[in-house]
Measured scan of single mutants.
Amino acid sequence: QSSFEIPDDVPLPAGWEMAKTSSGQRYFLNHIDQTTTWQDPRKAMLSQMN
Rank of each mutant, 00 (worst) to 15 (best):
P7A: 15
M49Y: 10
T37F: 01
R42T: 02
M18H: 04
G24F: 01
M49H: 06
A19G: 08
P41R: 00
S23N: 14
P11Q: 03
R42A: 01
S2V: 06
S23V: 09
G15A: 06
S47W: 07
F28Q: 03
E17C: 02
D40K: 02
K20R: 13
D40R: 01
Q39N: 09
T36K: 02
P7I: 13
Q25T: 06
T36V: 08
P41F: 00
D33K: 09
P41N: 03
T35D: 04
T37L: 01
W38D: 05
D9Y: 09
K20G: 05
G24Y: 03
I6C: 11
F28A: 02
N50D: 15
I6L: 11
K20W: 11
D9N: 13
Q1M: 12
L46Y: 15
H31M: 07
L29F: 08
L12E: 03
T37C: 02
S3V: 02
Y27C: 06
S22T: 14
Q39D: 07
T37R: 01
N50H: 06
D8M: 09
G24Q: 05
Q48A: 12
I32T: 09
T37E: 02
E5G: 07
P41I: 00
Q34S: 11
Q25V: 11
V10I: 12
Q25H: 13
H31G: 05
A19R: 13
W38L: 08
G15V: 02
Q25M: 10
R42K: 00
W38P: 05
E5Q: 12
L46G: 14
P13C: 00
A14P: 15
M49P: 14
F4C: 12
Q48C: 12
Q48L: 06
N50P: 15
I32L: 13
Q39C: 13
D33M: 14
M18F: 04
T21A: 08
R42H: 01
L29R: 09
T21H: 08
S3G: 04
L12Y: 08
N30A: 00
T35S: 11
T35N: 08
M18K: 08
Q39Y: 05
E5K: 08
A14I: 08
K20C: 11
R26M: 13
T21V: 05
P13T: 01
M49C: 14
M45V: 13
R26G: 05
H31Q: 07
Y27M: 02
E17F: 00
E17Q: 11
D9E: 14
V10H: 12
N50G: 06
K20M: 12
A14D: 14
A44K: 05
F4G: 03
F4Y: 14
T37V: 01
I32D: 15
S47C: 13
V10N: 12
R26S: 12
I6M: 15
L12M: 13
R42Y: 01
S2E: 09
M45L: 14
F28I: 02
P11S: 08
D9V: 07
S22E: 14
E5A: 11
Y27G: 02
Q1W: 03
L46W: 08
D8Q: 07
A14S: 12
R42G: 01
Q25F: 07
V10A: 12
D8L: 06
N50V: 08
L12N: 00
H31K: 14
M18E: 15
S23W: 04
Q25W: 05
A44W: 13
Q48S: 14
I32V: 11
W16G: 04
N30Y: 03
Y27A: 02
Q25I: 07
T35A: 05
M18Q: 10
T37N: 01
L12K: 03
N30D: 05
L29Y: 05
R26K: 06
L29A: 05
T36W: 01
Q48Y: 09
W38E: 07
S22G: 11
R26Q: 12
Q1Y: 15
F28Y: 07
E5F: 09
G24T: 03
S47L: 13
G24R: 03
P41Q: 00
E17S: 13
W16T: 05
D8A: 09
M45Q: 13
N50L: 07
S23T: 11
P7M: 11
E5W: 08
F28S: 03
L29N: 03
N50F: 10
D9M: 08
F28G: 02
P41M: 00
G24K: 04
N30K: 01
D8R: 06
P7E: 08
W38A: 06
G24H: 07
P41C: 00
Q25C: 09
I6R: 08
M49R: 11
R26F: 06
M45I: 15
S3D: 11
L12Q: 03
T36Q: 04
H31I: 06
E17P: 03
L46E: 14
A19I: 04
F28P: 01
R26I: 13
P41L: 00
R26L: 09
R42V: 00
G15F: 08
D40Q: 01
T36H: 04
L12H: 03
R26A: 08
Q39K: 11
V10D: 11
I6W: 04
Q34C: 11
A19W: 04
P11F: 12
P13Q: 02
D9C: 10
D8W: 07
D40E: 00
V10Q: 13
L46K: 14
A14Y: 10
T36I: 02
L12R: 02
M49L: 13
